[in-house]
Amino acid sequence: DEWTVEDKVLFEQAFSFHGKSFHRIQQMLPDKTIASLVKYYYSWKKTR
């Protein structure tokens, strides 16, 4: 599952609005599965 720079920026924006409500985040990133969002979240969180 490839994440473009745009995907990553959108994820951060969606996360700032919705927190860990992955269903709502998915509405902003409809091409990503919930599982993909959760997996990305945990790898992204480690870099914070």
Results as ranks from 00 to 15, higher is better:
residue 41 Y to E: 08
residue 12 E to Y: 11
residue 41 Y to K: 09
residue 6 E to R: 11
residue 17 F to E: 15
residue 45 K to D: 14
residue 11 F to W: 00
residue 38 V to D: 06
residue 42 Y to V: 14
residue 15 F to R: 05
residue 30 P to V: 04
residue 46 K to H: 15
residue 27 Q to K: 09
residue 21 S to W: 13
residue 46 K to S: 09
residue 31 D to R: 11
residue 7 D to S: 06
residue 12 E to K: 05
residue 40 Y to R: 00
residue 31 D to C: 09
residue 10 L to R: 12
residue 17 F to W: 06
residue 21 S to H: 12
residue 5 V to T: 09
residue 11 F to L: 00
residue 16 S to F: 05
residue 47 T to R: 13
residue 37 L to A: 05
residue 4 T to G: 01
residue 28 M to A: 10
residue 17 F to K: 14
residue 13 Q to C: 00
residue 22 F to Q: 00
residue 9 V to F: 08
residue 10 L to T: 04
residue 26 Q to E: 00
residue 36 S to E: 14
residue 32 K to A: 01
residue 42 Y to H: 11
residue 42 Y to G: 14
residue 20 K to E: 10
residue 10 L to A: 10
residue 26 Q to W: 02
residue 16 S to C: 06
residue 35 A to S: 13
residue 46 K to A: 13
residue 21 S to A: 15
residue 41 Y to A: 02
residue 29 L to Q: 04
residue 35 A to F: 13
residue 4 T to S: 12
residue 39 K to A: 08
residue 16 S to A: 13
residue 14 A to H: 12
residue 25 I to S: 00
residue 35 A to P: 10
residue 25 I to A: 07
residue 41 Y to T: 03
residue 4 T to E: 05
residue 20 K to W: 07
residue 46 K to W: 04
residue 45 K to S: 13
residue 2 E to T: 11
residue 43 S to M: 07
residue 3 W to C: 02
residue 13 Q to E: 11
residue 41 Y to F: 05
residue 39 K to S: 12
residue 11 F to G: 03
residue 32 K to T: 02
residue 22 F to A: 04
residue 40 Y to K: 10
residue 14 A to S: 00
residue 17 F to Y: 07
residue 25 I to T: 04
residue 16 S to G: 13
residue 36 S to M: 11
residue 45 K to W: 06
residue 3 W to G: 00
residue 6 E to F: 08
residue 12 E to Q: 08
residue 10 L to G: 06
residue 44 W to T: 10
residue 21 S to V: 10
residue 45 K to I: 09
residue 40 Y to A: 03
residue 9 V to G: 12
residue 22 F to R: 00
residue 36 S to K: 06
residue 46 K to F: 08
residue 23 H to T: 12
residue 30 P to R: 00
residue 37 L to K: 04
residue 32 K to H: 09
residue 29 L to N: 03
residue 27 Q to E: 13
residue 13 Q to V: 15
residue 6 E to T: 10
residue 35 A to R: 14
residue 41 Y to N: 09
residue 11 F to M: 04
residue 46 K to C: 00
residue 42 Y to N: 14
residue 5 V to K: 14
residue 16 S to P: 07
residue 17 F to T: 15
residue 29 L to R: 03
residue 38 V to A: 12
residue 31 D to I: 03
residue 7 D to N: 02
residue 8 K to T: 08
residue 27 Q to T: 09
residue 15 F to G: 03
residue 31 D to F: 03
residue 37 L to S: 02
residue 24 R to N: 07
residue 7 D to F: 00
residue 10 L to V: 14
residue 34 I to S: 04
residue 32 K to Y: 01
residue 20 K to A: 10
residue 9 V to R: 12
residue 37 L to D: 09
residue 6 E to N: 10
residue 38 V to E: 13
residue 47 T to Q: 00
residue 44 W to Y: 15
residue 18 H to Y: 14
residue 36 S to A: 08
residue 43 S to L: 08
residue 21 S to D: 15
residue 29 L to W: 00
residue 23 H to R: 09
residue 46 K to P: 02
residue 11 F to C: 11
residue 17 F to N: 12
residue 33 T to I: 00
residue 42 Y to M: 15
residue 26 Q to M: 09
residue 18 H to I: 15
residue 38 V to F: 05
residue 36 S to Q: 14
residue 18 H to W: 01
residue 41 Y to V: 05
residue 39 K to G: 13
residue 40 Y to G: 00
residue 44 W to F: 15
residue 35 A to M: 12
residue 25 I to H: 04
residue 30 P to S: 01
residue 41 Y to C: 08
residue 21 S to G: 00
residue 7 D to A: 02
residue 12 E to L: 08
residue 45 K to L: 06
residue 9 V to T: 14
residue 28 M to E: 06
residue 29 L to C: 02
residue 11 F to S: 03
residue 9 V to Y: 07
residue 34 I to P: 00
residue 5 V to R: 12
residue 31 D to W: 08
residue 22 F to M: 07
residue 48 R to G: 14
residue 9 V to I: 14
residue 22 F to T: 03
residue 31 D to G: 14
residue 14 A to Y: 07
residue 17 F to G: 02
residue 30 P to Q: 04
residue 3 W to D: 03
residue 18 H to A: 02
residue 19 G to M: 06
residue 39 K to M: 03
residue 31 D to E: 14
residue 9 V to H: 11
residue 47 T to I: 06
residue 15 F to T: 06
residue 22 F to G: 03
residue 39 K to Y: 12
residue 42 Y to L: 14
residue 2 E to Q: 08
residue 3 W to L: 01
residue 6 E to I: 07
residue 46 K to N: 09
residue 30 P to K: 12
residue 7 D to E: 06
residue 36 S to I: 08
residue 44 W to N: 15
residue 24 R to V: 08
residue 4 T to Y: 11
residue 47 T to N: 13
residue 28 M to T: 09
residue 20 K to L: 05
residue 4 T to R: 06
residue 35 A to D: 10
residue 9 V to Q: 10
residue 7 D to T: 04
residue 23 H to E: 13
residue 17 F to C: 01
residue 35 A to L: 13
residue 40 Y to I: 10
residue 23 H to N: 13
residue 33 T to E: 05
residue 39 K to C: 07
residue 20 K to G: 11
residue 27 Q to M: 15
residue 5 V to I: 11
residue 21 S to T: 00
residue 23 H to F: 04
residue 1 D to E: 12
residue 25 I to V: 03
residue 15 F to Q: 02
residue 15 F to M: 04
residue 31 D to V: 08
residue 37 L to T: 08
residue 20 K to V: 03
residue 6 E to S: 01
residue 16 S to K: 12
residue 36 S to W: 01
residue 30 P to H: 08
residue 39 K to P: 01
residue 14 A to R: 06
residue 7 D to P: 09
residue 21 S to R: 15
residue 38 V to I: 15
residue 41 Y to M: 14
residue 35 A to G: 14
residue 30 P to A: 02
residue 13 Q to A: 10
residue 27 Q to C: 03
residue 6 E to G: 09
residue 46 K to T: 03
residue 45 K to E: 07
residue 36 S to G: 12
residue 15 F to E: 01
residue 38 V to C: 05
residue 37 L to Y: 07
residue 22 F to E: 03
residue 7 D to R: 01
residue 43 S to P: 02
residue 16 S to T: 09
residue 35 A to K: 13
residue 6 E to Y: 04
residue 19 G to W: 03
residue 32 K to G: 01
residue 28 M to W: 07
residue 23 H to L: 14
residue 34 I to L: 09
residue 15 F to K: 07
residue 4 T to I: 08
residue 44 W to A: 02
residue 20 K to R: 07
residue 34 I to Q: 03
residue 8 K to W: 00
residue 12 E to M: 02
residue 39 K to L: 03
residue 6 E to H: 08
residue 38 V to H: 04
residue 3 W to S: 05
residue 44 W to R: 08
residue 36 S to L: 00
residue 28 M to N: 12
residue 44 W to Q: 03
residue 46 K to G: 12
residue 14 A to F: 09
residue 46 K to V: 09
residue 26 Q to K: 15
residue 31 D to Y: 14
residue 25 I to K: 08
residue 44 W to P: 03
residue 25 I to E: 04
residue 4 T to P: 01
residue 43 S to E: 13
residue 26 Q to L: 05
residue 13 Q to M: 13
residue 2 E to K: 15
residue 32 K to E: 01
residue 36 S to F: 05
residue 39 K to H: 14
residue 17 F to V: 13
residue 42 Y to S: 14
residue 27 Q to R: 11
residue 44 W to G: 05
residue 20 K to P: 04
residue 35 A to H: 12
residue 13 Q to L: 04
residue 33 T to W: 04
residue 29 L to F: 11
residue 8 K to V: 06
residue 33 T to P: 15
residue 34 I to F: 14
residue 10 L to K: 15
residue 12 E to A: 07
residue 32 K to S: 00
residue 21 S to M: 10
residue 4 T to V: 03
residue 16 S to V: 10
residue 26 Q to A: 02
residue 40 Y to S: 01
residue 47 T to S: 09
residue 27 Q to W: 00
residue 18 H to T: 10
residue 14 A to K: 10
residue 47 T to V: 03
residue 17 F to L: 12
residue 17 F to I: 13
residue 2 E to A: 02
residue 3 W to Q: 08
residue 27 Q to L: 10
residue 6 E to A: 10
residue 41 Y to L: 06
residue 5 V to C: 08
residue 32 K to D: 00
residue 39 K to W: 05
residue 48 R to E: 14
residue 15 F to P: 01
residue 37 L to G: 01
residue 25 I to C: 01
residue 14 A to V: 03
residue 6 E to W: 02
residue 13 Q to H: 12
residue 34 I to K: 05
residue 23 H to Q: 11
residue 40 Y to P: 10
residue 21 S to E: 15
residue 18 H to S: 04
residue 6 E to Q: 15
residue 24 R to G: 03
residue 7 D to C: 11
residue 19 G to D: 08
residue 28 M to L: 07
residue 7 D to G: 07
residue 12 E to H: 06
residue 12 E to G: 04
residue 22 F to S: 01
residue 19 G to I: 05
residue 16 S to H: 15
residue 8 K to M: 14
residue 27 Q to N: 12
residue 42 Y to I: 13
residue 17 F to P: 08
residue 16 S to D: 14
residue 11 F to D: 01
residue 26 Q to C: 12
residue 42 Y to P: 02
residue 6 E to V: 02
residue 17 F to D: 15
residue 43 S to V: 13
residue 36 S to H: 11
residue 45 K to T: 12
residue 41 Y to W: 07
residue 24 R to D: 15
residue 12 E to V: 02
residue 27 Q to G: 05
residue 34 I to D: 09
residue 14 A to C: 04
residue 19 G to L: 05
residue 4 T to C: 05
residue 30 P to W: 15
residue 21 S to P: 05
residue 32 K to Q: 01
residue 35 A to W: 09
residue 3 W to R: 00
residue 35 A to C: 09
residue 30 P to F: 12
residue 32 K to M: 02
residue 3 W to F: 11
residue 18 H to D: 06
residue 39 K to V: 03
residue 13 Q to S: 07
residue 5 V to P: 10
residue 30 P to C: 04
residue 7 D to L: 02
residue 16 S to R: 14
residue 18 H to G: 03
residue 42 Y to W: 14
residue 10 L to M: 15
residue 20 K to D: 07
residue 9 V to E: 11
residue 15 F to W: 05
residue 2 E to F: 13
residue 36 S to C: 14
residue 39 K to T: 09
residue 35 A to N: 12
